[in-house]
Design a protein around this nucleic acid. Sequence first.
DNA 1: TCCTTGGTTCA
DNA 2: CGCCATGCG
DNA 3: TGAACCAAGGACCGCATGGCG
Length: 223
Amino acid sequence: MRLISWNVNGIRAVAKKGFLDTVKELDPDILCIQETKASVDQLDDSLLNIPGYKSYFSSAERKGYSGTCVYTKREPVSVSYGLGEDEFDHEGRTIELDFGDFILYNIYFPNGGRGPEIVEFKLRFYDCFLKKVKKQMDEGRMVLVCGDVNTAHKEIDLSNPKANSKISGFLPEERVYMDHFAETGLVDTFRMLYPDVTEKYTWWSYKTFARDRNVGWRIDYFF
DNA sequence: TCCTTGGTTCA
DNA sequence: CGCCATGCG
DNA sequence: TGAACCAAGGACCGCATGGCG
């Protein structure tokens, strides 16, 4: 089974740049999208109904902000939106699909770059999420998680760990939560398969051609 | 992210 | 509608 | 004196919205 996670930074923008062709080529069984930046009524039928897939959308109340969706060939038993905690459920960040033999979360975790109070919000979000997952695991459920976590775990996971140790995305208090993910039983699959591989990133700064030079961060995960 | 400015340390 | 500023990442 | 090492501040790009004429 092929699962894909993709932060598109505007699904309408990528739709103009071959999104549907790419999906066809990649042929995922389940495709998890973050940062759709759109509400359902802003999307036309080609995005709402991709042939062969069921689709589920969750949008922020604020226009043009955040938002997630999932396209899946296999039909889930049930789908729910949000973490079940009012504070975290107004920005379309969480889609939870129950497939019976496993639960899959597609999550766009908050970006803390706008200030300390947003970092606090991000940490509370992590906390709420982990409590929920722990409960499900204690009940014997298998849980898969993918999405944009917005934190690099260890020094190996970004180009300039020293210079970024005071920047949101690599703060000590954020990295501790990546430890908590592991303690909860959520395995960073990439790092499990490639424990020593360096310079593999999922996000690059828009500044100074960072992507061309592969100066980046690994902040998107499959657990 | 990178470059600049300005401040500190220490051979 | 085009143009520019703002918010966000 | 000057080399080396920081901390802090500013410009930077792309998507989307909204105000204005």
